[in-house]
Design a protein around this nucleic acid. Sequence first.
DNA 1: GCCAACGTTGGC
DNA 2: GCCAACGTTGGC
Length: 135
Amino acid sequence: MNYWLIKSEPSTYSWEDLVKLGRDHWDGVRNYSARNNLRAMQEGDLALFYHSVNEKAIIGIAKVVREHYPDPTTDDDRWLVVDFAPEGKLTRPVTLEEIKQHPQLTEMVLVNNSRLSVQPVQKDEFEVIVGLGES
DNA sequence: GCCAACGTTGGC
DNA sequence: GCCAACGTTGGC
């Protein structure tokens, strides 16, 4: 069981879009590090869903419901997708600012490499964030 | 809207 | 194989 963080601009693809669809593939990843993280995901893994740019906050949790397969939006076989389903919305969003200020979250990839769109999250980090979001 | 940081591309 | 140039992302 591993934990992840997936990032999207809400104007392009938001948490609400995923909820509306029930499940969906996560396409458009064109970065090798992010791709490698997608490939490492296993069914049942949980991912924090982060809204970048305008909101800059984690808004919900998504679950991996299908492991990686070739990206249907391109013929280029280097790229792949993973299917997610919404697992639950946080009671309140956990903001980037809050994460930066939290002493247990200073090592998060989100803080240190904000551009990586699919990133691993430590179990304790995941639990701290869920704890904040449910408080 | 700006720009720093990062990743990728392509010429050599 | 190196590295300059370029494009993109995302925080501010």
